[in-house]
Amino acid sequence: MERLRYEFVLEAAQPIAHHAESIGNEAILMRRRLRYRGGWAEVPVITGDTMRHGLREAAAYALLDAAGLLDEGAAALSEAALRLLFAGGMVTGSSGGAVKLTEYWQLCDLIPPLALLGGCVSNRVVPGRLVVEDATLVCDEAERYLPPWVVAYAREQLGDLGSGRACVEEVQRTRMDPTLDPGKRRLLAADAAKAVQGRLLASEEAASAENPAAKEEAKSSLMPRRFERVAQGALFSWCVEATIYTELERDTFHVMCAAFLARARVGGKRGTGHGHLRPVTARSVGIRRPAEDLDVLDPGALAPKIGQLFRAHVAERRGALKAALDEVVA
């Protein structure tokens, strides 16, 4: 048994819009409360759940790719298989008192990421062996919780860490109402054009009469909304830890880290240039050794060098994997 702990510094290659909730028409960033000298601060984070989901998704795609199931029409996964691979499965009923460990071991053999990530299989919750921490914004308030080498690296790159507040910006976007554009209104069918025209007139009348209820009734669908985002170039500190028993598990762990970090996207608004995280440096920490014993990792070089064992293992079991995914209860 061995415990691997990798610590990464990730850079926001694009602004990060990872939101916790909306208040009115403003989306608020996900934050974690932490203690710092002089009080408590709410520091932006990318939750461990999000990062863990990213690893799970990357591992699932790597598995399907290695089994040749990503070719057009080759996958045709069932709903249960989709749930198992991309959301960890679900307890959908009772399987009685007996626990079939052989079934679990067989599935772990066919789906190596399952042993690390855990999930619900055959209506049993299977614990995982992966600990994925929040990616925490590198800032003054979070300094005492960051690995010392991360703080040193950030100071070298940025000078001062800066406050968490300085890394957050507020922006506004507006969803336009196409019915306000005369050119687009010409595309409407006659009855629809008449209805829109009526609404616009009613809106104008309500505005001139200063009638709030009528204004609300006739308002357009134009929607300005604001959201917080972590500015481009901000740094995050992220740790992932796995307990492994075999070389296949080590390779699987490396595959999922490399596949995720090769194109890590988190949070919302990904369709409009948000969410891309880029690994800039990393360390491997020996759990049972002093913290000074850090091996330098090149996160960019992880991908091409690893995964041979994982891919060969999965490809060899392609048929059995397909059959298991067809029948799995998850």
Partner: peptide, 17 residues
């Protein structure tokens, strides 16, 4: 939070889901 993998269902569940 938990969300059904909608994108994957559209891409990989063709014919089954």
């Amino acid at each position: 939070n938990r969300r059904f993998p909608v994108e994957e269902a559209q891409a990989l569940g063709r014919g089954r889901v």
